[in-house]
Nucleic acid binder design. Structure first.
Length: 796
RNA sequence: GGGCCCGUAGUCUAGUUGGUUAGGACGUCGCCCUCACGCGGCGAAGGUCGCCGGUUCAAGUCCGGCCGGGCCCA
């Protein structure tokens, strides 16, 4: 059984399950994923050492349009050129290729995943579960089919959900267009989308706008058409925008949808699924929206109806995958009722532990802001089929039974002879497929073993759901609504948020910005452990972190430092058979560093409990580099080199301390830098400690016996004296190894004198002192920083 | 317009419930050439913690206002 294997049969240890987000197999494991995966791998490794039976699965969220597009390109075909199952096969080949590449990157990064759990959402065994969840939600009344305004991406030619719509600021032209009043005269409206004039169903002004009160209720002629519409008032109209008169079209934006509903206006669609003008657009029929816009403006100009045009910047709604501006179309689609769950979402979001805490607002605010239910049908091929047929005669919906699944209605008929309503035997399949989020949003239940494992609730809800800040509104939200609807239970107990990776220029990292760094380059240059240090130490959990080569290099230098320190310790321990049964007399500085190691253990443990990886990282790096290496190792060298002078028991004490502290440090670092710690463990400790891997060793708990506050305080004083002596040598531009003939330390009192005397051997060894005198008097001399009464005089 | 977050040395950033001299990294400037490491070591300089006001014995931290930036949503 592998080191990271989850033991299903172990009922004694507590479980800890990670809801690993299955990534989209794009073929590149980018720095954002490195950040994400490192976070929860640190957590998984930490929990494993804490004694949990850690469940750390890995899946792949395979379906989606980018793969369709690339498959079409690669094979020079259109998705409709071949049967859906054939096209699916071609997509699967591509996805498998990309998964291989990404899997390699995850392994290289050192993630402690249990690969026996690997799954792909495109496997029939997975979409069986997606379909089952659809069937169950249908039966529970959460699924409905309806004709509603929906977001439509004309490039992808599919409906998309609110969560898939992003907003961008773009500069655009605001056209001032004269609409002829039926009586006489004109009103000038301002619009950025003149191509929608054929779909204009009313003209609106703000009810409080004095300028236009007289026109309310009057009829106005819609240019390019032979229609007139009534002028209405609407609070949504901003009197400051343009002329304060706007046209309401079906549909220009979501505000139009509200107005149409409010004023019970007709719907005139003039744009089709491909983003072209349809027959409602009159002479503009067949043009693209851009062509129609140009043409209409030309015509209005000719008629003298175009007053002026100005350039403004405007928020445009775009498709998050391709950044094409979306249209709002009215189409028949499948929906999941999500808004009825909003109160539940809020209640559960507040029960969940968020890292960091304020991220819960992202989920709650998003849930509350939704106007529409979730549109779950997509007009694509490479996705989970909707398990529905329609009766050819009476159009009755025939829902698949759970035991028919998985099933593709586009290929197979329902496993029933006749329509349950009219008895007819002809069926037509639902050709639409499910949103890919419908696949991935049951991950918590699927990871736990639903529906096949009887005891799946044992791993449900997941202990942690890790998520990028950008996908809280999709992943975290959809998980929540789906599991609440299916099981009346929240899907995860805690949510660990990672920020975005920024480029060295401070902007978010994008290929198009020219600030893109491929994770492969980073991993190849400095290795996984250095890269993971950049993640852990780069910034506070949840905040965006900039990519900096210097940070990775620092991590890499730290590894070299740790490696060399381990080498040194290993050399010094050559004659130490085993740490057991060694007689030693701990010296002040031994107790000092042991005490500091205990405090470090507590601080790192606390930080990891709170998912404050940056704090854990800094604590342990600081200790290893500055306390252990720069101070303790340097101070103890003399004692190690000259047992004949100090005595064997003092040397053994140093050896014991080195052995103990290095092991502690390796354990504390193991979750963050798994490779180097394992390597050192195997060569120096494995035989003695007996654990197969450092990652299976029990997490250290602070040893109260070693929490010697007095020794720490006294050691700090000895260290301060050493520092001050060095500072004087630096000030006098003398080499550090300059021999001091005589060092007099004045302590001001007898108590302090005893303390210094206790550590004088370390001062002698570290500062190269021939003779030291510790005197309780108060005398002139160089003051020790932080100890105003302690001074020294050195004779060189 | 609403919500959330942020503003700390030249640069990037840490700072849990308010409590010693605001921590770290990069960069800069001296010095060392010490037998684990020069991918080192020892030191130094550099901060009115955006601005204004308040609460408090005590504010980077809490409250209010202002200025500036980011994200999400209208």
């Amino acid at each position: 059984m592998g080191t990271y294997h989850f033991d299903w049969n172990d009922k004694t240890r507590q479980t800890f399950s990670v809801d690993t987000p299955p990534p989209y197999p794009s073929g590149e494991f980018h720095m954002g994923l490195v950040l994400n995966w490192t976070y929860f791998d640190i957590l998984a490794r930490y929990k494993r050492m804490r004694g949990y039976n850690v469940y750390f699965p890995q899946g792949w969220d395979c379906h989606g349009l980018p793969t369709e597009v690339e498959t079409e390109k690669e094979h020079g075909i259109k998705k409709t050129d071949v049967p859906p199952d054939k096209f699916r096969e071609l997509c699967e080949e591509l996805v498998d290729k990309y998964i291989k590449v990404m899997k390699k990157a995850i392994i290289r990064l050192g993630c402690s995943i249990d690969w026996t759990t690997e799954y792909k959402t495109m496997d029939p065994n997975y979409w069986r579960r997606t379909q089952l969840s659809f069937v169950l939600l249908y039966k529970k009344g959460f699924i409905y089919r309806g004709t509603h305004p929906i977001n439509w991406c004309p490039r992808c030619e599919t409906a998309i959900a609110d969560a898939e719509v992003e907003h961008e600021t773009r500069t655009t032209q605001l056209h001032y267009i004269k609409f002829r009043l039926e009586d006489s005269g004109f009103l000038t409206i301002a619009t950025t989308r003149p191509e929608l004039i054929p779909a204009c169903v009313t003209v609106a002004v703000n009810p409080h706008d004095e300028r236009y009160k007289q026109y309310v209720g009057k009829k106005i002629h819609v240019p390019t058409t032979d229609r007139t519409v009534e002028i209405v008032t609407d609070d949504l109209v901003d009197p400051e925008f343009g002329t304060g008169v706007v046209m309401i079209c079906t549909y220009g934006d979501k505000a139009d949808v509200k107005s149409v509903l409010k004023h019970k206006l007709p719907v005139i669609m003039c744009i089709d699924e491909k983003g072209k003008m349809n027959q409602n657009a009159g002479k503009y029929t067949g043009m693209t929206t851009d062509e129609a816009k140009k043409s209409i403006i030309e015509n209005l100009k000719d008629e003298g109806l175009l007053e002026k045009t100005e350039t403004i910047s405007q928020e445009v709604s775009v498709c998050w995958r391709c950044h094409t501006p979306i249209e709002i179309l009215e189409r028949e689609q499948w929906f999941m009722k999500t808004r009825i769950l909003t109160d539940q979402v809020e209640k559960n979001a507040l029960q969940i532990k968020w890292y960091p805490d304020y991220m819960k607002h992202r989920l709650i605010d998003w849930a509350k802001s939704l106007d529409w239910d979730w549109v779950i049908s997509r007009q694509r091929v490479f996705a989970t089929p909707i398990p529905i047929w329609y009766c050819k005669k009476c159009n009755e919906v025939i829902l698949a039974e759970p035991n028919w699944l998985p099933i593709d209605p586009r290929i197979e008929n329902p496993k029933t002879d006749k329509c349950p309503k009219c008895g007819s035997t002809g069926f037509k399949p639902e050709r639409d497929v499910l949103d890919t989020w419908f696949d991935s949003s049951i991950s918590c239940a699927v990871h736990a073993g639903w529906p096949d494992k009887k005891d799946w609730r044992r791993l449900f809800p997941a202990d942690v759901h890790p998520s990028g800040v950008d996908i809280i509104r999709t992943w975290a939200y959809y998980l929540m609504v789906r599991h609440l609807a299916l099981f009346k239970e929240k899907p995860y107990k805690s949510c660990l948020i990672n920020g975005m990776v920024l480029g060295t220029d401070g902007r978010s990292m994008h290929k198009s910005f020219g600030n893109y760094i491929a994770s492969q380059d980073v991993l190849l240059k400095h290795g996984a452990d250095a890269t993971r240090q950049w993640v852990a130490g780069g910034g506070a959990t949840g905040s965006d972190i900039p990519f900096r080569w210097q940070d990775v290099e620092y991590g890499w230098r730290f590894l070299i430092k740790l490696w060399n320190a381990s080498r040194f310790v290993s050399n010094q321990l050559k004659d130490l058979e085993s740490d057991e049964n060694v007689e030693y007399t701990l010296q002040l500085l031994d107790k000092w560093v042991l005490c500091k190691a205990e405090k470090l253990t507590k601080n790192v443990t606390d930080a990891l409990e709170r998912c404050q990886f940056n704090i854990a990282m800094e604590e342990v790096r600081n200790f290893v580099w500055h306390v252990f290496c720069d101070r303790y190792l340097e101070a103890v060298k003399d004692r190690l080199y000259k047992p004949e002078h100090y005595g064997e028991k003092k040397r053994k004490a140093a050896q014991h301390t080195l052995y103990t502290v290095l092991y502690r440090v390796l354990q504390l670092l193991a979750p963050i830098t798994p490779h180097i710690t394992e390597e050192v463990y195997q060569t120096m400790y494995a035989e003695d400690k007996g654990y197969r891997s450092i990652h299976l060793s029990p997490w250290p708990t602070p040893d109260k016996a070693r929490l010697d506050e007095e020794a720490e305080k006294h050691g700090d004083l000895i260290m301060a004296i050493i520092t001050e002596v060095r500072r004087e040598k630096a000030e006098k531009r003398m080499p550090l190894n300059t021999q001091i003939k005589k060092l007099r330390v004045y302590t001001g009192n007898r108590e302090t004198a005893l303390i210094v005397n206790n550590g004088k051997e370390d001062i002698i060894g570290t500062c190269k002192v021939t003779e030291i005198k510790v005197l309780p008097e108060k005398e002139e001399g160089k003051e020790i920083q932080g100890y105003p009464n302690v001074r020294f005089v050195a004779e060189y």
